[in-house]
Computed example of a mutant assay.
Amino acid sequence: MKGLSNRVAVITGGAGGIGAALCRRMNEEGVKVAILDLNRDAAASLADELGRGGVEAKAYGVDITSYEQVEAAIADIEATLGPIDILVNNAGWDHAARFVDTDPQLWQKLIAINLVGPLNLQHTVVKRMIARGFGRIVNVSSDAGRVGSSGESVYSACKGGVISFSKTLAREVARKQITVNVVCPGPTETALFRDFAGAGESGEKLRGALAKAIPFGRLGQPQDVVGAVCFLSSDDAAFITGQVLSVSGGLTMAG
């Protein structure tokens, strides 16, 4: 895609699932990737793999709920890889339960990871992008944030918040040639989804029901999402901002 080669990208939750697939695809496009993940060993292993392909990659063990850790990582990335051109907020976490069966401790954890974490990254990175007059931000939300999802009440609230925040930030930074867009995966085969669905017969029933409901007849795969993120990070999408794109095999088709 146009304008990706030699860019510097920060990808959170980059060591597994959609994040790892995205790091590999970005790397193939010639992007220098900073992999941020709570699991530093997994991030380091992926960075080593990508580095052998000739394009630089670096791993960071970061808790995105800590503004101080985020700030330190971003400063190091800019000192070693160069100015950050692309930010992808992909990290997330969920716990399946009816709202009435949850408690404030769980709410706070969900909010910290799924909403505060992306705010920390954008607050730290966007100031640098404004100073340079360029940037691409892609926030990975969820169709749960667009249409709701039983058993994901607070997660859905956070993901809906990410969508609203992205539209507002897009308005604030457009004059600086910074784009802010959102990609909303539907049910996708990742560790997060497997944890949500659960094991055994009940988990298989949920997978089967979702596969029947999705017009494409299957769950999404991480590779299904990465093309949309790369496109919105590229110069091909230079005049697109404040938009929300569902990648769900047609499960949700609302505007």
Rank of each mutant, 00 (worst) to 15 (best):
E204L: 13
V226C: 12
L22Q: 05
R98P: 15
V154L: 05
A15N: 02
Y155E: 10
G220D: 04
Q243C: 06
Q221S: 11
S202G: 10
K176N: 15
A57Y: 04
E152Q: 15
Q122C: 11
R52G: 04
N39L: 11
L210S: 07
K32I: 00
V62N: 00
A96H: 01
G160S: 09
A237K: 08
C23T: 10
M26W: 15
G145P: 00
G30Q: 09
A20V: 08
L232G: 06
K32A: 10
G92I: 02
G250L: 12
R128Q: 07
A15H: 11
G17L: 05
V225K: 01
R146N: 13
R207L: 14
V70Q: 00
L38P: 00
L106H: 09
K109Q: 13
G160P: 06
A197F: 10
A96E: 11
H123V: 12
G217Q: 10
I178R: 02
L219A: 14
L251R: 14
Q223A: 15
I18L: 13
G30I: 07
T188P: 02
Q223G: 05
E28Q: 15
Y60S: 07
L22I: 12
Q221H: 09
E56L: 14
C23K: 07
P222W: 07
G220S: 11
L4W: 03
V116T: 15
S164W: 01
A72E: 02
G16W: 00
G30A: 12
H95W: 06
G17W: 07
L169E: 04
R194Q: 15
G203P: 07
N120Q: 10
A21M: 06
A47F: 06
T179E: 06
K205A: 15
G3V: 02
T188D: 10
Y155L: 03
I113Y: 03
L46S: 00
F196S: 10
S246H: 03
G19C: 09
A9F: 04
G53Q: 08
K176H: 12
E28I: 11
L169V: 14
T80H: 10
V180M: 05
Y67M: 05
G148P: 08
G203T: 07
D195P: 00
P104A: 13
L192E: 03
I137M: 04
A9N: 07
E49A: 03
D236F: 06
C184E: 05
D101S: 09
G51R: 02
K2F: 08
E172A: 14
T179R: 02
P118Y: 05
Q243N: 13
R194C: 10
W93P: 04
S5W: 05
G242T: 11
V126E: 02
G145Y: 01
A157W: 02
D63V: 14
V10Y: 00
L206I: 15
E204F: 10
F216K: 12
T179A: 09
Q243F: 05
A199D: 14
D143L: 11
A34R: 02
E56Y: 04
P118L: 07
D94W: 03
N39A: 13
A209T: 13
K58R: 15
